[in-house]
Computed example of a mutant assay.
Amino acid sequence: MCESKPVTGPIPIHVGRIPGGAQLDLAALTRLVVGDVLDALLQGDDTTLWDLLHEVAAPSAGAAERLDREELEQQLVERASSRVPLYGPAAKRLAASILTAAGAHVPQQRGEAA
């Protein structure tokens, strides 16, 4: 489904065709995000997120009500990676790969003489 050669960068992006469009495979970003979440949960000097995770999973007898899962999710999202940097021509290669996978024509640049 995905092309064999990814658009390179700190986080490789594989582009593949799907019916009616393109699909980006960001497995490297997923690994980075999961690592960020684990780091946040296992931070030794601040157990706030770990405690919140356990409170959401099984509220203590003293808790007035079950803590909101969205609160935990928001705090983890704030600590997780979300950006994929592309340097130099990688952005153009990604755009061309997406357009190719989506079946769109990539126009050639015209020379100055044209």
Rank of each mutant, 00 (worst) to 15 (best):
A104D: 09
I18H: 08
R79K: 12
A63M: 13
A102K: 08
G20V: 02
L72E: 03
R69C: 07
G62D: 14
A104H: 15
M1N: 09
A64C: 04
D25V: 08
Q108N: 08
G20W: 06
V84Y: 05
W50D: 13
P12Q: 00
C2M: 09
S60A: 13
G35M: 02
V106R: 11
A64M: 12
A40C: 02
L49Q: 07
L49M: 04
P6M: 07
L86M: 05
Q74F: 09
I13G: 01
R66L: 00
E65S: 15
T47N: 13
S81Y: 00
G35L: 05
L26H: 00
I18Q: 11
E70Y: 10
A95R: 12
A27M: 03
P85G: 01
Q75W: 04
V106G: 02
R83W: 11
A61Y: 05
W50R: 09
P19N: 07
K92P: 00
P107N: 04
D46W: 02
R83Q: 08
G16D: 06
Q74A: 14
G21L: 07
R31Y: 06
R110V: 03
G103M: 04
V77G: 03
Q109N: 07
M1Q: 08
L94W: 04
A114E: 15
P19M: 02
E73G: 04
L38V: 05
H105W: 10
P19S: 12
G88K: 02
I13A: 00
G62K: 15
E112A: 12
A95N: 06
Q74L: 11
A91D: 09
W50F: 13
V77C: 09
T47S: 15
A101P: 07
Y87D: 14
A90R: 10
T47R: 15
Q109M: 10
Q75E: 13
D68C: 10
G88I: 05
V34A: 14
Q75G: 02
R79H: 00
E55L: 01
L67Y: 13
T100K: 12
